[in-house]
Simulated scan of single mutants.
Amino acid sequence: MRILGGGPEAGILGPGFLGGRDTAAVEDMDRPDCDPDRLRRTYEQFGLVNRVVAGWHRLYRTRVRPQLTSSGEAALLDVGCGGGDLAVMIARWAARDRIPLHVTGIDPDARAYRFAARRKPVPGVKFRQASSGDLLAEGRQYDVVISNHVLHHLTAPELQSFLDDSAGLARRLALHNDLRRSAAAYALFSAGALPLTGSYIRGDGLTSIRRSYTVTELAAVVPAGWTVEPHAPFHCLLSYRRHDTYGQGRA
């Protein structure tokens, strides 16, 4: 693995609150008995939150689009797509750029899949209730594989399997964007999410920050071949570019 960004990490935290990952914390929306109305509103609000804090439009322009424009009809996989807002946004950006793109959003959670599947249909976008391992077992491949705010949910063995799946599924690029733990991120999100009432966004967002990695922590646990770098605002970006010899002979 490589770390990009140079110099000592600015986000290193001391002991105590936010000094280490709180892997025992559980997001309320992940509980099987969570309130369905609040869960629905959470999925509805994800699109706004992701547009404001996740920085995907820049990632699309600088990382994703260059992998699509020279490949004719391309395919992108969004793993852990939740309510499907990112899959829809990327499909619309590609359509605006006149790039033929098929986007598949997958999530193993039946509740997320049902919400995404009920969205107004968008040309080139489809959703499945599935895991990355399911698609790998089917022999699927995509030009680009992405995820948003997934990594901090995974246990150590799950993270390794997830990244192995991603490398196997990606013909060109795997790109995973996740929260980066810091006191500033926690304080700003706590204040900024106050208007998002009636959902799990604020409480679960703060829990997610407590569970998330710093760049140095993430770099220490990912396999060789992956690159970790800071991505503003308050995100870690994990990327993998397929070598020409990786997976030769696969359909």
Rank of each mutant, 00 (worst) to 15 (best):
F162W: 01
P15M: 07
V125F: 01
A87I: 05
D204P: 07
W56E: 09
P123H: 06
D204G: 01
G247K: 02
L159R: 15
A224N: 14
G47E: 14
G7F: 04
I3L: 14
C81W: 03
L151K: 00
I99L: 08
R210P: 00
L169S: 03
L159G: 14
D107G: 14
A167N: 01
A251E: 13
V215K: 01
I106D: 02
A75L: 02
A184H: 08
Q141Y: 00
L18D: 09
K126N: 08
D22C: 07
D97L: 03
L151W: 00
V222C: 04
S71P: 00
Q160K: 13
A130H: 00
S166H: 02
A116N: 06
G133V: 11
G198Q: 05
L136S: 04
Y60T: 02
A137Y: 04
R211I: 03
C236W: 00
C81K: 09
R51L: 05
L77V: 06
L13I: 03
G105P: 00
R51N: 08
Y142Q: 05
M89W: 07
P100Y: 07
V222S: 05
A116W: 13
A183T: 15
R92P: 08
D107W: 06
L77E: 07
V222M: 05
G198M: 04
T227I: 15
L18E: 06
Q67V: 09
P100R: 05
A24D: 14
